[in-house]
Computed example of a mutant assay.
Amino acid sequence: MIRKSVLAALAAVVVFHVLIFIQYGVVWVGALAGYRELLLLFAFLLPTFLVHAPIARLFGADRLTRPPAPVKALLEGLCVVLVSLVFWRVFYLFPQHYLVPTAELSPRALRLSLVLSAVLSLFFYYFVEREHMRKHLEQEVVRVAQLQKETFQAQLEALQKQVDPHFLFNSLNVLGSLIHLDPDRAVQFLGQLSDVYRALLATGAQPLVPLRSELALVRAYAHLMETRFGAALHVELAIDPAWEQALVPPTAVQMLLENAIKHNGATPRKPLRIKVSAENGLLIVENNRHPRTDALPSTHTGLPNIQRRYHHLTDRPVEIVPTPERFVVRLPLLPAPTV
């Protein structure tokens, strides 16, 4: 509103003095009363500028898809002109009888004023509002491209960590032991391993996935890790089904579990406990802290990647709350689009 008011005031001043110069050959009006015309011009331009934004949204790229492009452009221009004609009568012609009662407008002057108002409205619509919309769309394209890049990076990092030789060595080592000790559990472990890869690949390039899809990946990954670490690890999923339609960035929750396991040591006597829950529109991942004595080098990409993706998706921040006893991360649950 403030931006449009300032723009309307500047435009009114410029147009008013240009018309004065064209008509009288001077820039300044001698009598102060003459500037009442300037006030009328501002009263016409301000509502005109304010209504341009809804018109631009109405005829945006994702609206009115049925008419062909030339017909759509013609309808858009006609809509701008019709609105300007209505505003010319309401905010310029009628008030003129009260503010400038001595003014006598000839039919020629009325027609010229009418045409000028339509031309001004079209000029400012296409060179101000549409230009603003074009820049906004360009920014949106950049935002979507950046979000897609972050999603690709997260998926690549998740896959790279899963195919890491150390991870594969440990997984195959566990699988080899289970084949001799418990063939049924070995088959289950192999299924869990394939479920992890399948869930990772299923997300594709999607910037958001339903929470239920992310939980399928988390369950598969948690079962895999619990089989590997035994009683030293316990993962609890306490999610009300009502939240499973909400959206989250893919692999975000799985990355938080992976970070917790990577940076904490655990034993059967002091197990690592990870809890995933949801409340008040937030997905909460928390774990007790058992800092490793042989701390692994951190790439510092997991949490920053999640934060950057959320930055492109919503104004709600990712909350990170570390304490000496616990590490808590709260992810905003984004609403699913309504059909």
Results as ranks from 00 to 15, higher is better:
127 F>D: 00
127 F>I: 00
127 F>Y: 08
127 F>S: 11
127 F>W: 00
127 F>E: 02
128 V>R: 00
128 V>F: 12
128 V>S: 07
128 V>E: 01
128 V>G: 05
128 V>N: 06
128 V>W: 05
129 E>T: 15
129 E>D: 07
129 E>G: 07
130 R>I: 05
130 R>A: 10
130 R>P: 08
131 E>R: 09
131 E>L: 04
132 H>G: 15
133 M>S: 11
133 M>L: 02
134 R>L: 09
134 R>S: 14
134 R>K: 09
135 K>Y: 10
135 K>W: 09
135 K>M: 07
135 K>E: 13
135 K>H: 13
137 L>S: 14
137 L>D: 14
137 L>Y: 13
137 L>E: 13
137 L>Q: 12
137 L>F: 10
138 E>N: 06
138 E>F: 08
138 E>Q: 14
138 E>R: 02
138 E>M: 01
138 E>L: 08
138 E>P: 03
139 Q>P: 03
139 Q>E: 13
139 Q>R: 10
140 E>Q: 11
141 V>S: 13
141 V>M: 04
142 V>A: 15
142 V>P: 06
142 V>K: 04
143 R>E: 03
143 R>N: 14
143 R>H: 08
143 R>I: 06
144 V>D: 08
144 V>H: 09
144 V>Y: 05
144 V>A: 12
145 A>N: 08
145 A>C: 00
145 A>K: 01
145 A>Q: 07
146 Q>P: 06
146 Q>D: 11
146 Q>Y: 01
147 L>A: 11
147 L>Q: 02
147 L>N: 05
147 L>V: 09
147 L>P: 03
148 Q>I: 08
148 Q>H: 13
148 Q>A: 15
148 Q>S: 15
148 Q>L: 10
149 K>H: 13
149 K>Q: 12
149 K>P: 05
150 E>M: 01
150 E>D: 11
150 E>Q: 03
151 T>I: 07
151 T>R: 00
152 F>M: 10
152 F>R: 00
152 F>I: 05
152 F>A: 12
153 Q>P: 01
153 Q>G: 14
153 Q>N: 15
153 Q>F: 15
154 A>P: 00
154 A>Q: 02
154 A>E: 00
154 A>D: 04
155 Q>G: 12
155 Q>P: 05
155 Q>T: 13
155 Q>Y: 03
155 Q>S: 14
155 Q>W: 00
156 L>N: 11
156 L>G: 08
156 L>F: 10
156 L>M: 12
156 L>A: 15
156 L>C: 07
156 L>S: 12
157 E>H: 09
157 E>V: 09
157 E>K: 01
157 E>F: 12
157 E>I: 04
157 E>P: 01
158 A>P: 01
159 L>A: 09
159 L>Y: 05
159 L>F: 14
